[in-house]
């Protein structure tokens, strides 16, 4: 039996954690993602850029109380990719 290939963008623990969080919320700030994933600022920033470049998340930069604020939301493409990834993972686990 052939296994469905896993999306390399999502098959990374931090990127998968970010996308899974964003599936459950509509929009989340950088600090919220930082707190809930336990990642370092640098690593999270790098992985958010990867997800943004892949078109899986949208990133909005603004100012909150005079400090820069980054908030992220899942795109339709990101949600589709996540659903496909979960389907593929289930295929692996069911065999």
């Amino acid at each position: 039996m052939a296994f469905a290939p896993l999306d390399p963008i999502l098959h990374n623990q931090l990127r998968l954690a970010v996308v899974s969080l964003l599936v459950g919320v509509e929009r989340a700030d950088f600090n919220y993602l930082l707190e809930h994933t336990g990642a370092t600022r640098g690593n999270l920033s790098t992985q958010l850029t990867r997800l943004k470049e892949a078109g899986y998340i949208s990133v909005k930069k603004s100012f909150k109380d005079n400090y820069p604020n980054t908030s992220c939301a899942l795109t339709a493409k990101g949600l589709k990719a996540f659903e496909t990834y979960v389907g593929a993972i289930k295929g692996y686990l069911d065999t």
Binding site: N12, V23, V25, N43
Partner: peptide, 25 residues
Amino acid sequence: MDQEMTPAQSMEVIHRMIAEAKQSA
């Protein structure tokens, strides 16, 4: 958080993060 994941670990990350998000309302 960058090591290779098994399918079971992937599923565990997904479940854990979705549970976290559920408590964020």
